[in-house]
Design a protein around this nucleic acid. Sequence first.
DNA 1: CACCCTCGCGCC
DNA 2: AAATGGCGCGAGGGTG
Length: 561
Amino acid sequence: MHIIVGEEEGAFAVLEGSNRYAFTPDELVEYVLEQEREQPPRWVFASVSETYPTLLRAGVRLRRCHDLTLVEGLLLAYEGREREPRGLAAAYARVRGLEVPPDPAPPGAERQPTLFETRGPGLPEGVSVVEACRVVLAEQERRIRRAEHPERLRLLFAAESASALAAAEMSADGLPWRADVHDALLTELLGPRVPTGQRPRRLVELAARISDAFGGKPVNPDSPPTIVRAFGREGIEIPSARAHVLREIDHPAVPPLLEYRDLARLHSANGWAWIDEWIRDGRFRPVYVVGGVVSGRWASQGGGALQIPARLRVCVRADPGWKLVVADAAQLEPRVLTALAGDRKLAEVSGSTDLYDSLARAMFSPGTRTLYRGKEMDDRGRAKIAMLSAMYGGTAGEASSLLALLRQRFPEAVSYVERAAQAGERGERVRSRLGRTSPAPSDAWRALTGGASEDVAAEGKARRAARDWGRFTRNFVVQATAADWAAVLLATLRQRLPGDAHLVFFQHDEVLVHSPEDLADEVCRVIESAAEEVGKLLFGESCPVRFPLHVAAVDCYADAK
DNA sequence: CACCCTCGCGCC
DNA sequence: AAATGGCGCGAGGGTG
């Protein structure tokens, strides 16, 4: 059973079968709670991210939903039409054969609407939001039935829609964040807080030491070109000012420069200004963008939510009487590749929680070491390079020979990604297990790679462009299937968490649950059993690949792992 | 001033 | 000869 909810200018319309209601926000809340108590329906929204936060503020949590915009985007990509607008008005217009309006600017863009832009849903006169939803939903169901694996798309759409619920819930609940701990850490590393725009004491000292090391001439350590020139004057030519380049140089400016870089980044990306902007009432509330990345990974808007530096994990602490349950999938992507390819030999390797360690034993005779980019590398490191090269298309240094060895041992897995790469090189699309579909290459790409070779240089450029796109599609099948896995995990998990335990953070292959202390053990078990089911849901009951998680109930995020 | 690019580096 | 995927963000530096 599904119930369509449409929002128009603060009022709500509800379509339940042939019944139609108009509700105030308060009435809607009462209605929703009643429905959820009896037999939870599938709630249909034009967009969860636009409507659900209002319900959350009123204390409403939904179990299941269908996000028409997210699903439209996935379906359009599946059908090779990802450039078409995906909002409700556009989807409705396509069904009715009307002129298709562009998507409204995302709410994050602070752009004022121009004179000719209209606010609101952009539907034709006389068509209500719920009516449009009803029409689009029916059309989406027809398109699903036409697909090669309708059941996979249904799982994908349910999981993606549930992810949207989870994302809004996590933003509303917030990640516990101790501003006082964060402030103390900044003060310890940078010196006392200074007004925005000024360099903290420690950075001032380091900048002076850097200039001294360059003979007293002021050098702006924030400007890479200036650093390259400064080394040039010392007779040291470097291609860039990147840390790994600087580390190879024997010069007194290098140590203070590297330390400056490190601390300056902390100050600018996650300094006091960040605390002021993002931490309220002991919570970090980023805006997550479900499906914001072509591969289906989430993106975030502001706050760098998916790039929290590891050293700030000390700031993430459970409330008194609560625990943080931290769970991250161990080497998710190689396991996903194993399952996708149905590589039974590699599946045996996945039985170990440390996949790379066990892969090393399968690839090498024990204890051999070689040099890799000048560094001694043990077998585990080499096994990891081999696997990453397969998934990313790397061929630098020893990678190609390691990849060749991996191909010899596990031909099914390696040929799976190589077929995806070849498809990309031909300009074809590839799909994740559940049907996330890679975009078409650009017209510029087709022009570059399509023509017959005019000269050697043009042919080289074309070849490089083709290979680049091949690396993208090679990685897409793995990354997008990992996104499938994570979405299904989130969908499963948010249904099963006991009591007041709730998701507070998600990052690609890792979840954090804030849980009352006495429920933490149960939360750990729920997460572990959910993860076991996810592999079967995606790849079938007989899938032999294990997807183990590291799960830990801790007081502080930094204590996990 | 707004806008756009590159660089460099944090996360997966 | 060398060639690894996906992001977000801030700073510098240029353009119009």
